[in-house]
């Protein structure tokens, strides 16, 4: 009799629990069946009426039923909780295509990005970076660089002057920093020197009265033109890519002898000739040479013991080339729509 009652409770309770959709419903069921005044408890109260043989059997059965119901509640509760969570997450769904809150880091000027790249290459090769004055003596900008009196670069039409006797000027090249380094630094020297330079050019797509150059120099005993070539080849490969093809052409600078210009094979046409290289197949990247013995001697360095190489080039042109910027004016215009592109 009790046995049948227990079986009935089990069946009814399990069926009801499986239908429960909410945590509260489940709780009501738990109270109804397992609570102190619950149905199972009520049945168990009749245990006293049972015989000594029946009691353990029914007791066992009752415990089984209780365990069954508890586990049914537990698993149903877990299922309900899972559904609740799923519904909550669904309701919290966002449109991931909506843009994030605007956060913009500032940008380094593209020209200085290029400069940083160059500096890092030379730093890795044991070079130092030096800076020096821009308001310079003619002696350092010209004379000590073997640019003689009467040279066209010295004309007032080309160079900005501060004094009537043409002795103080805005440096027209970064090369005077070579002289300062030779005069003040112990040998050997390995340095690069970037900076602003000034020439009397009207502003247009390729000219600016102020622009930037970078200068490099190594002086030691036994430095050769082969060293110059090898070092510059290495630098250019790091800048333009490992498979860059280079060539050196004789050229003329007053402060180097022999002098050269370095070309890279056009990265667009690989030497065939195209608009980028103006049909030449090559693009000039820098001027260089062995430091003129007169320049060394002028700085008190014995040219029969020491030799050195030097190079220089314009940073703007490099930046323009690297970023395919068509007009130099953009560099100095500083339009944020331009700057944020880099």
């Amino acid at each position: 009799m009790i046995k049948q009652q227990l079986e009935a409770i089990r069946a009814a309770a399990v069926a009801a629990m499986e239908k429960a959709e909410k945590a509260e419903e489940l709780e009501t069921l738990r109270v109804r069946y397992l609570g102190k005044k619950g149905e199972l408890t009520a049945v168990l109260k009749q245990m006293g009426k049972l015989s000594a043989e029946e009691r353990p059997v029914i007791g066992q059965l009752a415990n089984d039923v209780r365990a069954k119901l508890e586990s049914a509640i537990e698993s149903r509760a877990a299922l309900i909780a899972e559904r609740v969570m799923a519904a909550k997450l669904l309701s919290e769904t966002v449109d991931v295509t909506i843009p994030g809150e605007p956060r913009r880091l500032g940008k380094q000027h593209p020209m200085y990005q290029v400069l940083d790249e160059i500096e890092d290459i030379f730093i890795g090769m044991g070079f130092e970076v030096i800076e020096d004055r821009e308001v310079e003596l003619s002696e350092y900008n010209f004379t000590k660089l073997n640019v003689e009196e009467g040279h066209p670069a010295r004309e007032w039409s080309d160079t900005f002057y501060f004094t009537e006797d043409s002795s103080v000027l805005l440096r027209t090249q970064t090369s005077p920093m070579q002289i300062h380094a030779m005069e003040t630094r112990p040998l050997p020297i390995r340095m690069i020197a970037p900076g602003r330079v000034y020439r009397k050019d009207e502003v247009d797509a390729t000219h600016s009265p102020m622009f930037h150059q970078i200068e490099g120099m190594a002086i030691n005993k036994g430095i050769t033109m082969a060293d110059l070539k090898g070092t510059l080849n290495e630098v250019v490969r790091r800048l333009y890519g490992e498979d860059t093809v280079t060539r050196f052409r004789p050229h003329h600078f007053p402060f180097t002898e022999p002098s050269c210009e370095m070309d890279i094979q056009c990265y667009k046409c690989h030497g065939a000739g195209c608009p980028t290289c103006k049909g030449e197949g090559w693009i000039e990247v820098l001027g260089a040479g062995m430091i003129h013995p007169k320049v060394l001697e002028g700085c008190g360095i014995d040219s029969s013991v020491y030799s050195g190489w030097a190079f220089g080039f314009g940073l703007e042109r490099l930046a323009l080339g690297q970023y395919k910027i068509s007009d130099l004016r953009l560099i100095f215009e500083n339009d944020v729509r331009f700057l944020e592109q880099f």
Binding site: I123, M125, G126, F127, E128, P188, I189, R190, A218, N220, K221, G222, I223, T224, M225, A226, D227, L228, K229, G230, T231, N233, E234, R247, F248, R249, P250, P258, C260, W309
Partner: peptide, 17 residues
Amino acid sequence: YNNIPNTLTNGASTRGG
């Protein structure tokens, strides 16, 4: 010029950096 060998600048090292 292009037949001149290419060597890395040797000699006493400088501090650099």
